[in-house]
Amino acid sequence: MAAASVDTSSWEFPDVCRHYFGKFGQWSSLVFSMVSLVGAMVVYWVLMSNFLFNTGQFIYNHAHNVNVSDSEFGTNGSERVICPYPNTDPGGNDTISTLYLSSSGNGTSDVNDFQRYWSKTNTVPFYLIILLLPLLCFRSASFFARFTFLGTLSVLYLIALVTYKAVRLGFHLEFHWFDATQFYVPEFRLLFPQLTGVLTLAFFIHNCIITLMKSNKHQENNVRDLSVAYLLVGMTYMYVGVLIFASFPSPPLFKDCIEPNFLDNFPTTDKLVFVARAFLLFQMITVYPLLGYLVRVQIMSQIFGNHYPSFFHVLMLNILIVGAGVLMAKFYPNIGSIIRFSGATCGLALVFVFPTLVHMISLRRQGRLSWPSAIFHSFLILLGIANLIAQFFL
Rank of each mutant, 00 (worst) to 15 (best):
P289M: 07
S142D: 13
S215Y: 13
P251H: 13
V167H: 05
V81F: 02
A141W: 05
G384S: 01
M360Q: 08
Q298M: 08
Y164R: 06
L232A: 08
V358N: 02
L369W: 11
N106T: 15
G22K: 10
A40T: 02
I299N: 04
W27R: 06
D225S: 11
E220C: 14
P355F: 08
G105E: 15
Y100T: 14
I129Q: 07
M284V: 03
L99E: 05
P252N: 12
V242H: 15
L173C: 12
Y20E: 11
R189A: 10
L383H: 09
W371M: 14
Y164T: 05
P267F: 02
I321R: 03
N122I: 09
N112C: 14
F183I: 01
C208K: 11
L291F: 06
N387K: 01
G107A: 09
P309Q: 10
V68K: 04
L30Y: 01
Y237H: 05
S119N: 14
T123M: 07
R80P: 05
Y164M: 07
A145Y: 01
N221S: 15
A386R: 09
Y308T: 02
N76R: 11
W27Q: 04
A63D: 15
I205E: 06
T95G: 04
Y288L: 08
Y184Q: 02
F254S: 08
Q283K: 00
K120V: 05
L133D: 03
A229V: 09
A63R: 14
I244W: 14
N65A: 13
R277M: 04
T236I: 01
H218A: 15
L253H: 03
L380Y: 11
H307W: 12
F58Y: 15
S9K: 10
R296F: 00
C137E: 06
L128I: 07
F376K: 15
M284C: 08
V322M: 08
T356N: 08
V198E: 01
N54K: 14
H307E: 13
F51M: 12
F282V: 03
L394R: 12
Q115M: 13
I209F: 10
L394W: 14
R364A: 15
P193C: 07
F126R: 10
L380I: 11
P355C: 05
M213E: 11
T345C: 10
L263Y: 02
R116V: 10
F138G: 00
A202Q: 06
F147P: 00
R146M: 11
K214C: 11
L153V: 00
N306H: 13
P267N: 04
D94F: 08
G105F: 12
T95M: 11
N318T: 07
L131S: 06
N265W: 01
W11P: 12
Q57G: 12
A374F: 15
R146P: 03
Y239D: 04
D113I: 12
D7M: 07
R168S: 13
G241I: 09
D15L: 09
T123H: 09
A329V: 02
